Computed example of a mutant assay.
Amino acid sequence: MALSTTVRRAALVAAVLVALFLLLRISSPSSPNPLSVQSTSAQTEQPSRPYPPPKSPNKPQPGQKTVQDIASRPLRERLRYHFPYDIEAKFPAYIWQTWKTAPGSGKFEERLRPFEASWSSLHPGFVHEVITDDAAAHLISYLYASVPEVVQAYEAMPLPVLKADFFRYLILLARGGIYSDIDTQALQSATDWLPQTLDKSTVGLVIGIEADPDRADWDEWYARRIQFCQWTIQSKPGHPILRDIVATITDDTLEMEKAGKLHKGKQVTKSIMEFTGPGVWTDTIFSYFNNKEYFDFSSRNTNVTYSDFFGITEHKKIGDVVVLPITSFSPGVGQMGAEGTEHRMAFVKHEFDGSWKPENERMKGE
């Protein structure tokens, strides 16, 4: 009888302890919410913070510049402050696209649905946003409220194509992730774009080659001998290339606005290729490759030039930038060495729909 009583008491004590543990675990503010816990593998697919992110007060440390101090600094310095770059961070699991209407509306064009759906189906753990023109204006105003001249430049652009080009740089600078035009089809998940052996903590930007024309009249078709595409870009927030192109486009836009050269609905004096498109994008990338602020020139005797990318068939890493071959974002074009869509290096297919851009602006500005 004594043994039985002892067993019952032990069982009762154990039950009480278990119940007490569970109550403490549920009520403790330090206990994580089971719904918000992510495994190590899931974290590579989930965004690093909610969208839109909550506002948090900036509390400067002793000796650190305050927001008031930064407000008087040059544009590039302010962009660096408000959108810091952390190369060791993970690529945010965002996919950004833009279009006139949202996929959930009845006005979204049916021909675009398979393209848009391909990104969601291959990236189930990503936040996939198709931003409408109206929403884009509000989003840029929110993200760049601390840098008002960027908002002013965006609003001053007279053509939708200019805003669409500018938007991709702005959203990637502020939030990172992947931008891809609405007329692109994802062929492979972005988790497979880089070799598994490559340390992603050393990569901050992934770009592809749009054009590598080995012909004498290349300048009649393209803006640059080697041209990097900007219909698909992957980046970590704050990358210096994005910061530089945002500052360049902002300065150029405000200068033209001040000179009275911007009129809504009318073409600007500078071609789209050179103003916001692949021409200025390519120049900005090469400028970064040859910037002594970011690269140690003691170990190399020459600048990075077009010839460094002629005919590449595998990824090429320059500093923290990975350049993919033409097959990766331009498979099936049937020229310049591009392989077909079934090739192992084919990641994104561009349909070259371009109905929202002037026909003469996709290949070469006039």
Rank of each mutant, 00 (worst) to 15 (best):
F275Q: 01
T269D: 15
F297Y: 13
I285W: 00
Y288V: 00
Q267L: 12
F275N: 02
N290T: 06
G279M: 04
D283H: 07
N290R: 07
T284C: 09
G277Y: 01
F295L: 06
F297Q: 14
D283A: 11
E293V: 12
Q267M: 09
W281G: 02
F286T: 03
Q267P: 04
S299M: 14
F275D: 01
I285M: 10
P278L: 00
K270T: 15
W281T: 10
F286S: 02
T282V: 08
G279Y: 00
T276S: 13
S299Q: 15
S299G: 08
T284N: 04
N291G: 06
V280I: 14
P278R: 06
K292R: 10
T276L: 05
Y294H: 14
S298V: 04
I285S: 01
N301C: 08
T284M: 06
I272N: 12
R300P: 05
F275A: 00
Q267C: 08
E293D: 11
K270S: 12
F286Q: 03
F289T: 03
N301S: 14
K270L: 15
D283I: 02
S271D: 13
E274H: 11
K270Y: 05
D296Q: 08
G279P: 01
M273C: 10
T282C: 06
S287R: 11
G277C: 05
I272C: 09
E274Q: 13
E293C: 08
N291K: 07
T276K: 03
T302Y: 12
R300I: 10
T269S: 15
F297T: 14
D283P: 01
K292P: 12
R300L: 07
S287Y: 03
G279F: 00
F297R: 11
E293I: 09
R300V: 14
N290Q: 09
K270V: 15
F295W: 06
Y294C: 07
E274K: 13
V268S: 11
D283T: 11
D283E: 12
G279I: 01
N291Y: 06
T282Q: 05
N301R: 15
Y294E: 12
P278Q: 10
K292F: 03
T282K: 05
E274F: 01
V268T: 15
T276D: 00
I272R: 07
S298Y: 05
D296C: 07
I285C: 02
P278D: 10
K270A: 14
M273W: 06
N301I: 11
E293R: 12
K292T: 12
